[in-house]
Design a protein around this nucleic acid. Structure first.
Length: 477
RNA sequence: CGGGGUGUGGUGCAGAGGUAGCACGCUUGGUUCGGGACCAAGAGGUCGCUGGUUCAAAUCCAGUCACUCCGACCA
């Protein structure tokens, strides 16, 4: 089946797509299911992908002036209760520790669903003067949210993430930080994950509990559903006031700090699968692939074959390519399928015939194309090819995204767009009632409002009233 | 929390009162190797749990637990 047909097919049958997704992650040895509902064991291959994501993103976060730190897993319940909207938003899904052994605790502890509260508590102790600002902190940690329905990587009870928390002296500076980190996520998604995203501001209904404004990057999955892949929040003084984060400014007055927070999670691995995968399984962009090139020997028992393969492996490694030689005694056909399923970007086949001709067969996971490459220049060619694949994968995903956005002027058009697995882009009056109606009629939600607000119509597509915003709509994970 | 569904070797399933089976995987030996190889010989299960009916229960009945899908909630 050609890939385009496959995409069409999986887009038509959602439940099959879910099954496909589960198959990919299990057969690609990304996870085992955990013993607690909604938890997962990330297997070494899956974790290696996370490590590349972590490493690349951590460099970008540090390059923007942030430092890593670590805060406790357990948060006294009273901390969580200090910000009204925050506690209301998270209360239903926090796990609470109430006993140690048989002894009840004086105060219940919650397992962090996010760390704003405990970090703000610490910030209030650290900050006294404008000279202490800005505080730019990042944490790599696990968090727990007891979700009712879960799906590996996309929504698990426990997940790994990065959460940034900053304090600034002015609103302007904090807002600038919020947008800056959103841009970091956008660039990271594009350059490392080959994943195009819609960037913009969330509606008040969809914003983070406790934030003034929430911004997001939204990626489109192959089944036409949206995935919120990262968020950046401007918190204003919503936390600074209850947690008493105050500083003495130049003018001698006590002032509350302005804050931002932002995060991305292991959900990105799920996004990778659903953005780049096909019917053969996972397809990884070279920059986050644990194995970038795998060498499969044909008739491996022949000494000249193994020798040539080993030489090729060394030359690849010498150029910094993450390469593997698989000379296990499984059949070549089995290995082809196995590494395609795991998303290895490039496969190199070397057999007796090739050695005679001085070439190797090179297979691209993204296009499924097979070409001959001279053995002499193999490593250099593979290095170039990996760069090409990285760019091509982004372009392919971007074409898919762009061709699945439809501008709509009314509910009928929106319904058609959503049913066709498209994102709908429309004008909107800004009323919550219109969002609720879309949810009720189409099971879709507002995604975000792009920064470019050039009108694409004049009336709200839902109610027909005067439009205030341009906004994306879609079904979401 | 509402509505379905499923629990039997490692995995996927069949068995619908009478000796627990099949496929894949796993182990050993051999032949293979250019798209999930083949032959031969093996290992592996008190049928989710508890109680009941029966000469006899994986099978029928009652309860219970777990998992799962579809809704509401969420990164």
């Amino acid at each position: 089946m050609a890939e385009k047909d496959f995409v069409k097919e999986i887009a038509d049958i959602e439940s099959d797509f879910a099954q496909w997704y589960t198959d990919v992650i299990l057969k690609s040895e990304l996870v085992d299911y955990g013993p607690v509902k909604g938890t997962m064991v990330i297997r070494p291959y899956g974790y290696a992908i996370w490590e590349f994501i972590q490493k690349n993103l951590d460099e970008r976060i540090k390059a923007t002036g942030h430092q890593n730190a670590y805060f406790p897993l357990f948060i006294p319940e009273s901390f969580l209760q200090k910000e009204a909207e925050h506690v209301e938003g998270f209360a239903p899904e926090v796990a609470r520790v109430t006993h140690v052994g048989q002894e009840p605790l004086a105060e219940a502890l919650v397992i962090r669903p996010t760390s704003e509260t405990i970090i703000c508590e610490m910030f209030s102790r650290w900050i006294q003067s404008y000279r202490d600002l800005p505080v730019l902190i990042n944490q790599w940690a696990n968090v727990v949210r007891w979700e009712k329905t879960t799906r590996p990587f996309l929504r698990t009870s426990e997940f790994l993430w990065q959460e940034g928390h900053t304090v600034h002296a002015t609103e302007e500076e904090a807002r600038e930080e919020t947008i800056k980190m959103l841009k970091v996520y956008q660039d990271f998604a594009k350059e490392e994950l080959a994943m195009p995203v819609l960037v913009g501001k969330k509606s008040p209904k969809e914003k983070f509990a406790g934030a003034v404004d929430t911004y997001s990057i939204e990626a489109m999955m192959l089944d036409g559903k949206s995935l919120q892949a990262g968020t950046s929040h401007y918190l204003g003084q919503n936390f600074a006031k209850p947690f008493n984060i105050r500083f003495l400014d130049k003018d001698g007055a006590h002032k509350y700090g302005y804050q931002s927070s932002w995060g991305v999670s292991t959900r990105l691995i799920g996004a990778l699968i659903m953005v780049h995968g096909d019917q053969r399984g996972l397809a990884l962009p070279p920059k986050v692939a644990p194995i970038q090139a795998v060498i499969i020997p044909i008739a491996a028992k022949k000494p000249e074959v193994l020798e040539t393969c080993e030489k090729a492996l060394e030359s690849l490694k010498a150029l910094g390519i993450r390469a593997k030689l698989d000379n296990s005694d499984a059949s070549p056909g089995w290995k082809f399928n196995e590494y395609e399923m795991r998303g290895v970007p490039v496969r190199i086949e070397i057999g007796p015939r090739d050695i005679q001709n001085g070439i190797a067969m090179v297979f691209r996971r993204d296009t499924l194309a097979k070409t001959e490459v001279k053995l002499d220049s193999l490593a250099q060619e593979i290095k170039k090819l990996l760069d090409v694949i990285q760019v091509d994968m982004y372009n392919k995903a971007n074409d898919f995204l762009q061709s699945h956005i439809t501008v709509v002027q009314n509910m009928r058009e929106m319904e058609e767009a959503i049913q066709n697995k498209h994102f709908a882009l429309s004008m909107w009056c800004g009323d919550r009632a219109c969002e609720d109606l879309v949810k009720e009629k189409l099971q879709a939600t507002s995604r975000n409002m792009p920064f470019d607000q050039t009108p694409c119509g004049d009336k709200c597509a839902i109610c027909g009233k005067e439009a205030k915003f341009k906004i994306y709509w879609g079904k979401a994970y």
